[in-house]
Design a protein around this nucleic acid. Structure first.
Length: 308
DNA sequence: TAGATACCTTATAG
DNA sequence: ACTATAAGGTATC
């Protein structure tokens, strides 16, 4: 068992529950099994656990080959973790612990609604999840409630993921491209994916067959990256923006989901330009260009939890 | 190119 | 109980 502690004094403002339960990542589970039961459910100092493949996140180094388990919880003054490997760098990377939150907030728009969102969830970070996992989980997110999206990813991992034991318990890694490409549409539908089942299978086949990989968009200019990501089946502009923002590090990406669209109607009506691309540009500029995606994520979480 | 419609499944409102 | 509606949309026509 590896373990470690990250002092909040070094990291800066951080909110673990908001970060992993706000609907940007569907790859973490609360250890008490009460993942995503709403705001009122106190996460307290609950542990959150996920299975990672360090070699896919650290392509340049690290020789780990199999899946590894890491769990983390937030205490009054630190982030505490336990894992099957040395998870320090992985956590810093995936939870974007190096982000300078005060500087990011200062660089976004001085709007009352946004200020309320920042105040309410101050410390929430964007995540940096692996590209394939993000691609598939957001294909699944279409017309789905956040709580059910978590369930679907859990079902996918349980059905097709590689297992690994940690501290006496069995965990399942997120299935890779090959596993999902080999799954039948019927199997995926049985997990409750509905019409998203063939999308998941076909996109997995594209990656497994070497035809394309979501990570390839990383080096493109933002809008080119978004366009490139829509080549995957089941990926339109909104899901492409989610992959760009929550995985590839395009912090200016603003996924135009139903919540943000209604927010635009109510608070920023002049930003509604008809098309996705033009409205996207307008709201991005309004929220603060380079960190507009951070602003979007705070707004989304705030509004979805009843904020006005 | 812009607009309308079908699509799986589940939960909640009426 | 039963139907309508909506849920972090996309593909197709």
């Amino acid at each position: 068992m590896h373990e470690g502690t990250l002092a909040l004094g070094d990291i800066g403002p951080f909110d673990l529950q908001a970060t992993v339960e706000s609907g940007q990542s569907y790859l973490w589970d609360r250890d008490d099994g009460r993942m995503y039961e709403g705001e009122g459910t106190s996460a307290g100092e609950a542990w959150y656990v996920t299975v990672v493949r360090p070699e896919t996140e650290w392509a340049l180094e690290d020789t780990h080959s199999g899946p590894e388990v890491v769990r983390v919880r937030q205490t009054s003054d630190s982030l505490q973790w336990e894992a099957t490997f040395d998870a320090d760098r992985t956590l810093r990377h995936r939870l974007r612990l190096a982000d300078d939150l005060p500087a990011i907030r200062a660089a976004t728009a001085d709007e009352p609604l946004l200020g309320a969102a920042f105040d309410r969830y101050w410390g929430m970070r964007l995540v940096r999840d692996p590209p394939f996992e993000t691609l598939i989980s957001f294909i699944c997110s279409a017309q789905m409630r956040v709580g059910r999206i978590f369930e679907m990813q859990r079902a996918l991992a349980d059905a097709f993921g590689e297992s690994v034991t940690f501290d006496g318990d069995r965990y399942y890694a997120y299935p890779g491209p090959d596993a999902l490409a080999d799954a039948t549409e019927a199997q995926l539908r049985d997990l409750g994916l509905g019409y998203r089942a063939p999308y998941v299978k076909r996109s997995a086949e594209m990656v497994a067959g070497g035809e394309a990989h979501p990570a390839e968009a990383t080096d493109l200019a933002y809008e080119d990256a978004r366009d490139s990501l829509t080549q995957f089946v089941g990926v339109g502009e909104k899901v492409a923006d989610c992959v760009a923002l929550f995985s590839l590090g395009f912090l200016e990406a603003v996924p135009l989901d139903t919540w943000i669209q209604s927010t635009i109607e109510e608070y920023f009506p002049d930003c509604d330009r008809g098309s996705y691309a033009e409205t996207s540009r307008a709201i991005r500029q309004r929220l603060g260009d380079e960190y507009a995606g951070y602003a979007q994520t705070y707004l989304f979480h705030h509004l979805r939890n009843g904020g006005t």
